[in-house]
Nucleic acid binder design. Structure first.
Length: 559
RNA sequence: GUCCCAGUAGCUCAGUGGAUUAGAGCGCUUCCCUGCGGAGGAAGAGGCCACAGGUUCGAGUCCUGUCUGGGAUACCA
């Protein structure tokens, strides 16, 4: 990583200056290297001299000058300048930049990856919707976030498990079974009403008609458990299908029932009791959360003897720890933000360190249709499914998931976004994702054209990269070379939306290069530069495809 | 009431305490097809970064308060 290398160089320079007596002896501050907005200030800058002014008792600009004077040689550094009031500006070496094309080409599938994970086990839990109905727009953000975060972790060396946690037992599911039963009996001419808090959506009618075709009048004899199982099966099949359309594949579907059946919930309850973190009051069992740094104690076993949702969640997270995950990411909607501290407190009470568990809370999407807010409810059967939106925004050449994923990955999870359905459908053809994909398709087209014009890959494989000196070529190279840092930052901050912004900037730089630099030229005198630029194009295509790939967006060769 | 997240261009959103001009897309106004894909490019209009204080050499970014919106405040999940 360039930034890390720079930090090392800065430290070496400062220490050398101290050793030479050009700088007083003092402890260097933590070195911050940033990328200036203004290109005139170089590719990287550090404020270390300003931060050292006080401990060194010296003017920042003087400190900067001494650091630069003792700067060690490094192939990737082209220029080091001092600028008032004490910035050190670093510019990458043009020749080195051009050579990076070869580096990228030598590693097309993994350029930009790093190894901070070192093969350790990470788990990303996301979606985790109970099978009570189809996946809705409300689930989309978590789905896309989770999958891309998982991809980022894989790219940074983690051994990642994508996991979906669900519950197919309990009251909610019994109501689902009863609701399906009502729909089935309807088909047999026996009309009843959906139970209180039952599920009124049409999708249960479709399940019912399938069952009716298979079982006929025998449905009248079936019990609620039968309907519950059938409902869950059908809905899960639908959910998996939707996930598949989004390009999401889970490694593990973990069922809450397993926690009970294998005694894990019970074991956790016992352990909490013997640890003293659980106590009895008003006939219920409480978690002494106030002793764990939280505001109030919480019920974990109701006076009815049933555990609250917190209890299996605690047992589940203990199980995650026991499975040896070094890093766990949970992705929840804003409605869960109050619950996870309790769960983590419970896990801590059982003696586990929860520092490795990160919770990403994404805000809600406000849906608008005809300018009105659409309130969704699975129970009432009022919702907009992911499937239906995908249908609306899919085009002949580009799957709808590209638009959906890219759009969602443009926003920070903290922002509560408005999503206008009419606008989304109408404007999907103007979505920025196409701008990026167009860049990829354009490069692919150039490479195809090159082969036709007598510049096949074998011809440009050895193109002379040192010919890449045009400002637009260098600007493109700078952006390409930034990918490793973008991936590392996005992974560290669990913020995949940085990828979409990067991809747009990269596409912009490519379009500028295309405008300024003729690639395939018929003039024999241009042959050498054509070969070099074809290599650059190929490398740019690789980088663009990687950025898109991490977002789960396709990189089309034609569109 | 208390807690969490937000408030940046007409709209949807980026923005890692830094360096005279705060960015992108969409929308709007003008331009650019006698050579590789115009789903592109060039230029322009459009902002008291919600408001008020504070910290700092330096604040859209940190702290406090106010206002507005969303979420949470269960022996529901």
């Amino acid at each position: 990583m360039i930034k890390d290398d720079l930090i090392t160089l800065i430290q070496q320079a400062a220490k050398a200056a101290q050793k030479a007596g050009d700088l007083p002896t003092f402890d260097l501050p933590a070195i911050v290297v940033e990328q200036p907005k203004n290109a005139e200030h170089g590719d990287y800058a550090t404020n270390v001299a300003m931060q050292s002014a006080r401990p060194a008792r010296m003017a920042p600009i003087k400190i900067a000058e001494q650091i630069v004077r003792h700067w060690p040689a490094a192939p990737f550094v082209g220029k080091v300048d001092v600028a008032p009031p004490g910035f050190i500006n670093i510019t990458l070496d043009d020749g080195w930049l051009a050579q990076q094309v070869a580096v990228i080409q030598s590693n097309p599938a993994a350029f930009g990856n790093s190894d901070v994970g070192q093969g350790r086990k990470a788990q990303v839990e996301f979606v985790s919707a109970n099978p009570t109905g189809p996946l809705t727009i409300g689930h989309a953000w978590g789905a896309v976030l989770g999958d891309s975060i998982a991809s980022l972790l894989q790219a940074t060396g983690w051994d990642v498990t994508r996991e979906y946690y669900f519950n197919n037992g309990g009251r909610q599911m019994r109501l689902l079974g009863e609701s399906l039963q009502v729909r089935c009996l309807e088909l047999l001419g026996d009309y009843r009403s959906i139970p209180q808090d039952g599920y009124q959506g049409d999708y249960l009618r479709w399940v019912a008609s399938t069952l009716h075709a298979e079982y006929g009048d025998a449905l009248a004899e079936k019990d609620v458990d039968f309907f519950r199982t059938k409902a869950v099966d059908a809905i899960f099949a639908n959910i998996r299908c939707t996930l598949d359309r989004l390009g999401i594949r889970f490694d593990v579907y973990y069922n809450e029932l397993d926690l009970y059946e294998t005694g894990k919930v019970n074991a956790a309850v016992q352990a909490l009791a013997s640890s003293g973190y659980a106590y009895q009051k008003d006939g219920a069992t409480w978690l002494r959360a106030t002793d764990l740094g939280l505001k109030q104690d919480r019920v974990i076993i109701k006076s009815s003897g049933e555990p609250t949702y917190r209890m299996p969640d605690i047992a589940y997270h203990v199980h995650k720890m026991q499975r040896g995950f070094d890093f766990v990411v949970d992705i929840f909607g804003a409605d869960h933000h109050a619950t996870w501290p309790d769960v983590l407190a419970g896990v801590r009470a059982l003696g586990y360190n929860t520092d490795g568990i990160k919770v990403i809370i994404h805000q809600f999407i406000t849906l608008l249709r005809d300018g009105q807010e659409v309130k969704m409810s699975t129970r009432r059967g009022e919702f907009v499914t992911i499937d239906s939106l995908l249908d609306d925004i899919t085009t002949e050449t580009i799957p709808g998931k590209d638009v959906m994923r890219f759009t969602l990955l443009t926003r920070s999870p903290d922002s509560s976004m408005n999503f206008d359905l009419d606008l989304a459908v109408k404007q999907s053809s103007e979505n920025p994702v196409y701008y990026v994909q167009y860049g990829h398709a354009r490069i692919s087209s150039i490479l195809r054209k090159a082969t036709e014009e007598g510049f096949p890959p074998a011809a440009y494989a050895q193109g002379d990269l040192s010919l890449l000196t045009h400002p637009s070529e260098l600007a493109l190279l700078r952006k390409m070379v930034a990918l490793p840092e973008v991936i590392a930052n996005a992974a560290e901050q669990l913020a995949p939306h940085q990828l979409s912004h990067y991809a747009q900037e990269l596409a912009t730089q490519f379009h500028a290069f295309y405008r300024d630099c003729r690639v395939v030229s018929s003039d024999p005198a241009d042959r050498a530069i054509s070969l070099a630029r074809l290599r650059l194009c190929e490398a740019a295509r690789i980088v663009l495809a990687r950025a898109l790939g991490l977002m789960g967006v396709t990189a089309p060769e034609r569109m």
